[in-house]
Computed example of a mutant assay.
Amino acid sequence: MFSAAQYEAVISEIEQGTKTFEAKLAEVIPAADRVSSQWYVGEVLGDLLQWIARRTVEVGTEILNFILDVLKGATAPVFMFIDAYKWIDFKATANGVSTDVTVQNLVINSSDWSGQGHDAYLNAAAAQSTAAGRIGSIAKTASDNLLLCAGAGLAFYILVAGVVAKLIVEVVAATTAISTAVFSAVGAMIFLESGVVNVTAIVTALGLLSAFLGTQVNALVTLHGEAADPTSFPNGAWPKSNSAQYSDGTVKDGDADWSLKDD
């Protein structure tokens, strides 16, 4: 289920987290430079720490840029959620029309009106009721698919937020390990190892999200087919929606099949 408030909080957390992560990355190389200049740190260890620091920043920057690219699609679930609600409103309107123009609601009781005109009127009304109900069903399906897509987007960005939080902890730990110069080489390497795992987690989630959205695309294609299928619409066409489409309404202009003609 999609929650707009939760989604906004998650995206804000990611945006703030990327800024913090970038700031922590900027501290890695200076930390290596400081510890390498100490008298008790040998040249070999100092060079190793500086290499690890540079690689940490390189890998971290690549990860950061990847996450920033992922964030470019962050507005999509919000618009999907908004559009889903619009489709629900449309469904309610269409179903209301379908109910209002059923034969049961339009039958004129205790009336002298009968005959071919009466029957044709009720038949046309019934067709319009069926068409409106079909539109309501299509609107509901569209809304359901959009909500599912928005929910999948929320789940994905929750995972990204968790990865960003882990990256911050790990780069801080790497910087601390470098600064202490006590088992610093081993400690600093932890970020390089875990960074690959974290990126793999995002890529895997991105693949699952893409597969899910691909399924939804197929569902929307099917939905388009439902909308284009004329079988439930009067005379095989969508109901006409306004009086401008019935502009040829004069009885004496002579160009309509039913108009009156002077002999």
Rank of each mutant, 00 (worst) to 15 (best):
A185V: 11
V199C: 03
I82V: 15
P239G: 06
D33T: 11
N218Y: 09
N242R: 12
A228H: 10
Q116V: 04
D33E: 15
N95C: 06
V70G: 12
D47Q: 14
G195S: 11
A201C: 04
A152G: 04
N242C: 10
K91R: 07
V57I: 12
A165P: 01
L209E: 10
S179V: 09
V169Y: 14
W258L: 05
V59T: 10
Y121C: 03
F156S: 01
E27C: 10
I52R: 03
S114Q: 08
F79Q: 12
D257V: 05
L223G: 02
A31M: 10
V103G: 06
V78M: 11
L147R: 01
F90T: 12
D33V: 09
V221F: 07
G136T: 01
L49Q: 05
A127C: 04
V160N: 00
A173P: 01
T75E: 15
F66V: 15
S194K: 01
Q16N: 04
V103N: 05
A185N: 03
K240I: 10
L208H: 05
T75Q: 14
S143E: 04
L45Y: 15
G254M: 07
D255L: 08
Q6I: 09
S232A: 14
M80W: 02
V59S: 14
L148D: 05
A139W: 02
T130K: 02
V221Y: 11
A150I: 01
V197H: 03
G249A: 13
L213D: 09
A165C: 07
F191W: 08
A124H: 06
P234F: 09
T200V: 13
S232D: 13
E62T: 14
V163Q: 00
A53F: 15
A9P: 01
T61K: 15
A205I: 06
A205Y: 06
L122N: 03
G42W: 11
T56E: 13
G73C: 09
N235Q: 12
I135Q: 00
A126C: 07
N198R: 05
H224N: 14
L68F: 11
W51P: 04
V101Q: 04
D263W: 12
G136Q: 00
I168E: 08
D100H: 07
F2Q: 05
N242Y: 11
T250A: 00
Q116M: 05
E13H: 06
G207Q: 06
D144Y: 07
T175P: 02
A26D: 15
G207K: 01
G136C: 00
A201R: 02
L25C: 09
A211K: 07
F79G: 14
S247G: 12
T222P: 01
S259M: 03
A120H: 07
G115I: 09
D262F: 02
T231Q: 11
S98F: 09
K252C: 13
E193V: 12
G133I: 07
T175D: 08
K19M: 10
T75H: 15
G151F: 00
L68P: 02
L68H: 10
V221Q: 09
P30M: 12
V171C: 04
N105R: 08
T102S: 01
T99S: 11
S232F: 08
V44S: 13
F156P: 00
P239Q: 12
